[in-house]
Design a protein around this nucleic acid. Structure first.
Lengths: 467, 467
DNA sequence: TGATTTGTGACTTGACATTTC
DNA sequence: AGAAATGTCAAGTCACAAATC
């Protein structure tokens, strides 16, 4: 007979004993998943200790361990030895951020687009490409990892970002998200652990959940992830990789100075982690910002997959990204690219290549920088920036907001009032006590006037929200 | 002390006891993987029984179970209760089939392309699309699952194949392989089991290995998978899905008659399997072949993901496929599409759409059918077809060859003599005692003359091979 | 500081199903 | 036809590590 009287000190979760079928651990995990997904267990809830629940259900405590673990792999829970097991911040919902059909009344400061105003410059080049007399050669199955000529343009482009590589160690894929999916697929297995910033790219959290990668949040400061914190976690558990966006972390806008990169590289090397370096804002940093230095790929070529998307810098709709890797990863990466994509449309890549080789891409970048500068100025008009404001040209801002009990309803509140923004919780893989933020995209409205209206409305709403 | 004297009855695999580290099961799995990958354990080898090996290594027998299981999930092994554990047919190598750079002297009858001669008809349409005045609207992040207008064209196209659906239940992805990856990702978890034909699509085997899906081969006859065999396996173990290519199975060219589809649908429904229906040859069957009937999606809409690629039928390089699913799968599929692709280039889809709406696509199909007919005739000139020859217009043939000790070296033999073809072993997920075959692609040479030379050479080589 | 709480994970036990002989 | 061989899998035991009090 159980020692405690459970009625007096009720557990946070009491599964119905009668609903349990064999195997118990699966059945229990199912009940747990159901209760989380249906809101009976709020994010952050501390679950009953394994032994206590086991006692209550009259089973061995490792049966509970196993049930909890199933849910952990699905990204619903996380456990802390000596402390307890908790429901994850985003257990109950998908945090995927995608472009949605808004009603016309809503101004989208949520999804980060890329100042799509520049796309007409691309249309021109499409017409030029269509006149080429070798179009047929772009329409077959040849060169699954990219036509050599396209790869050369890629290397040319990435050279300005500080990347040195050759055509044998670059491949063309369909955008950065696609590159991430392929890299996870190629180099990681379900159950592996990847270290991430406490706040990290929401779609990375989501794809990790899907592929059953366990994320290990690492503390950071104003220069990004802390090497000591990473090392500590590496000592404590078996970590397989680390995901970083050094050129401008999403959502925090932190740009990692070269010094921090080197310190982190040291730890990454020491523990033989695989680094996924998503350098999506490099085109706004390299050659523009002093202490930017170079990509981490250059420090750790044998351990890094470097991802350079052209979606933010050149054109979002053509879905072209470059992936750079060393010989050790090559065969696995090529195989994964084939398994996921077969290949990326050579027509699209031809257009990007033409943009690069004719110098049009550089003009687009200049224009986007200009727009980013304008967007930033508008933002500063309505909100004060802290001295540690992150990347000056970032396509989005990380705006501290007062703590509120609304919490999960925050996004709803703004949406109902005509603004789409994302709450910091969406970028959490476990939980955090840091102050709440909003991520505010500056690059998604169709013009600056709309952005201005949006930011003004947001600042007004925020004043009301505080009370 | 062990009962048997192991020196007298040596086990097929004797791992070095001293190399074992803790955890034992992982370390053992690693040794096993190494020995398989380095050829010390040939495909088909029977491994020592779990209890015997455990005795030898002085560990509990379920430690061996676990080690074997790790390797099974990676597609290296398969176990049969009561019989033993065996090294898989393709354990040591990747069976991925991709377009490779051949030396000019090699004629490629391996990779199945799609009579790329028709691509110049596509070039024309690209020029037309480039002149549209709404190009910019194709270059942004909007409509990740496809622009409504594009979806309507998709439905229009698939209607001729017998599919009834609406725009809410179709999505656009980047080719059939991409569709498969997304479907696995969306609806299956690592460790799940999927039933397949004994000989099945090599790239499906490969992606399943990567995602740790266990394949369960099901016996078939000249009309495809046997419903009874499927049912038997379903009773025996927990099977989650089934992968079928009813319009023309790759590599066997079997087209499933409507009667068989209905019988299989019955079993699939009874055991609540998820059906992945890759209908890549439907455009060569629907309306052409009498007893083709309709896709299985129409019989089991709630359990089926229907994949319709335009690579084989319209244009291979543009990477566009349509996916049809019911409401129950919708949110998971849309999420997975976003996580893997974000979206498919709307420019490419616009071109495919234009091809469909102007009727050019239909003309391309007609031309491809003509070419397929020619290719088939050429084949019959050099090889006799059995009465159960499979799909008459198939882009490839399944050619019985004499048993030979060369086995794994068969592909090498033909390659060294100027022909790339694939041996039946490449399409096996476990093992089989059925007679050997070659898969001979008819659609990959740049013209019919080259195909003729290739087939002639192949028939000559085959005569020599027999001796 | 040290006992206690709490989670992790490898290995062991034992029931069971199928195949072989 | 039945005993033995063989693989599968859930659940239990146990050692340990980190956090808390």
């Amino acid at each position: 007979m159980p020692f405690n009287s459970f009625d007096h000190y009720p557990m946070s979760w009491k599964p119905n004993k009668n609903q349990l079928r064999r195997p118990i651990y699966r059945s229990l995990a199912q009940l747990l998943e159901h209760d989380i997904n249906h809101g009976f267990l709020a994010p952050g809830t501390k679950l009953p200790p394994q032994r206590e629940l086991a006692d209550y259900l009259d089973v061995n405590f490792t049966t509970i361990t196993r049930a909890y673990k199933l849910c952990e792999l699905k990204g619903l829970l996380y456990g802390v030895t000596g402390n307890g097991t908790f429901v994850g911040a985003n257990a109950a919902r998908s945090v995927t951020i995608s472009k949605e059909h808004n009603s016309n009344k809503v101004i989208d400061l949520g999804f980060v687009a890329s100042y799509e105003q520049t796309n007409e410059m691309v249309s021109e080049v499409i017409k030029q490409v269509a006149e080429k007399n070798y179009l047929e050669q772009l329409l077959n199955y040849n060169d699954p990892s990219g036509i050599p000529h396209h790869k050369l343009a890629a290397l040319n482009w990435m050279q300005t970002l500080g990347i040195q590589a050759d055509t044998e160690h670059v491949a063309i894929v369909s955008g950065a998200q696609n590159a991430i999916a392929i890299t996870l697929f190629a180099l990681f297995e379900p159950g592996n652990r990847i270290a991430v910033d406490v706040y990290t790219y929401a779609n990375f959290i989501e794809i990790s959940k899907m592929y059953q990668i366990r994320l290990v949040p690492i503390l950071g400061d104003e220069h990004g992830m802390l090497p000591d914190a990473l090392e500590e976690q590496c000592q404590q558990m078996n970590i397989d990789g680390v995901f970083l966006m050094p050129s401008c972390a999403n959502p925090t806008t932190i740009m990692m100075p070269i010094k921090r990169k080197m310190e982190l590289a040291h730890v990454i090397q020491k523990y033989a982690l695989i680094l996924i370096e998503d350098d999506f804002h490099a085109f706004l940093s390299a050659g523009t910002i002093d202490h930017y230095g170079q990509p981490m790929y250059q420090m750790l070529p044998n351990q890094t997959v470097y991802i350079c998307s052209t979606s933010k810098s050149i054109c979002s709709g053509l879905r072209v990204a470059y992936v750079v890797f060393n010989e050790v990863f090559k065969s696995k990466m090529i195989k994964a690219i084939y398994n996921v994509n077969v290949k990326t449309s050579s027509l699209d890549v031809e257009i990007i290549t033409e943009l690069i080789l004719t110098g049009q891409a550089q003009k687009i970048v200049e224009r986007k920088k200009q727009l980013a500068e304008e967007g930033s100025q508008l933002f500063r008009k309505y909100f004060s920036l802290s001295p540690q404001a992150g990347h000056p040209l970032s396509f989005f801002r990380w705006l501290p907001i007062p703590q509120s009990k609304k919490n999960l309803l925050t996004e709803r509140y703004f949406l109902d009032n005509g603004i789409r923004v994302f709450h910091s919780n969406r970028f959490l893989s476990s939980f955090s006590k840091e102050p709440d933020h909003l991520r505010v995209a500056l690059s998604s409205t169709s013009n600056m006037e709309e952005l201005k209206v949006g930011l003004k409305l947001l600042s007004e709403l925020l004043n009301l929200y505080q009370r």
